[in-house]
């Protein structure tokens, strides 16, 4: 049984335009992310999902409007956007390989009360590996560090970009459980190619196609319609 989608909006994107070189990657993307729970951002490869996440964070140049709880983000530098309460779990994990696990987490601390209790409750393994260089961890363990960095602080929204990419089936399950726990603490905007994970975690879905929003609604509705799923995602909804 699905729970009702919350009505308060935490993130509102209007007419977002991004050019990378000569390419017009995002061509007027507009959608809202309701507060609470998980909103999935889906689409085929190259649809503009990761670019949307990076545009929210100010990691790429963009035009349009991105409002986080009534605060305009366009024009702000990345570090100020993050300090407003935006967590980020990047696609390639991007842990600092030369630093230890403890140093990776220390670097992510923003407030005076970092939530190490929560982090080590979700990822007890990280507590045991505090002194280990992050570069020597497995892909799944590095993903734990990447998610832990976002969990460490109070956030209004956490942007999670393909958290299960390249992980073993066992680690996919662990990552999904961790994200479910994270979603109890903050709203998640989740880019995910694994539809099973998206279906398990998300209620609302925004589908991008060639730099435009092609569909918004409930994940369950999208995946229940094989023709729609095949059209926007390239797969049958029954997967």
């Amino acid at each position: 049984m699905s729970t009702p989608i919350a009505t308060r909006t935490v993130l509102e994107i209007k007419d977002l335009q991004v050019y990378l070189g000569e390419s017009h990657i995002l061509q007027g993307v507009s959608f809202e992310v309701p507060a609470g729970g998980v909103t999935a951002l889906l689409g085929r490869n190259g649809a503009g999902k990761t670019t949307t996440i990076k545009a929210i964070l100010g990691l790429v140049g963009r035009k349009g409007s991105i409002r986080l709880a009534d605060r305009e983000l366009v024009g702000l530098p990345t570090h100020e956007i993050v300090r407003l309460g935006v967590g980020y779990v990047p696609e390639e994990r991007e842990v600092f390989s030369e630093l230890t696990v403890a140093e990776n987490l220390k670097l992510a601390e923003r407030g005076t009360k970092p939530r190490y209790d929560l982090v080590f409750e979700v990822f007890p393994e990280l507590e045991q590996r505090r002194a280990q260089a992050a570069g020597s961890l497995s892909g799944g363990q590095q993903q734990m560090v990447a998610i832990a960095r976002a969990l460490l602080n109070e956030n209004q929204i956490i942007l999670v970009d393909e958290p299960t990419k390249g992980l073993s089936p066992l680690m996919v399950g662990k990552a999904a459980s961790a994200l479910k726990r994270a979603a109890e603490a903050a709203t998640l905007l989740l880019v995910e190619q694994n539809l099973q994970v998206a279906r398990t975690l998300a209620e609302k879905v925004v589908v991008l196609d060639e730099g435009r929003v092609a569909y918004t609604g409930r994940v369950a509705d999208l995946l229940a319609d094989p023709a729609l799923a095949r059209r926007y995602l390239g797969v049958g909804g029954s997967r």
């Binding site: 964070l57 990691l59 530098p77 990345t78 570090h79 993050v82 300090r83 980020y88 990047p90 991007e94 600092f96 390989s97 030369e98 630093l99 140093e103 220390k106 670097l107 992510a108 923003r110 960095r149 602080n153």
Partner: peptide
């Protein structure tokens, strides 16, 4: 020091340091 940590991390990946809320 924390600044030293920022510098070491920044040598590896400046953009990610900013994405952690740090003014590089």
């Amino acid at each position: 020091t924390r600044w030293g940590l920022i510098v070491r991390a920044g040598v590896e990946n400046r953009a990610m340091v900013s994405a952690l809320g740090i003014d590089v």
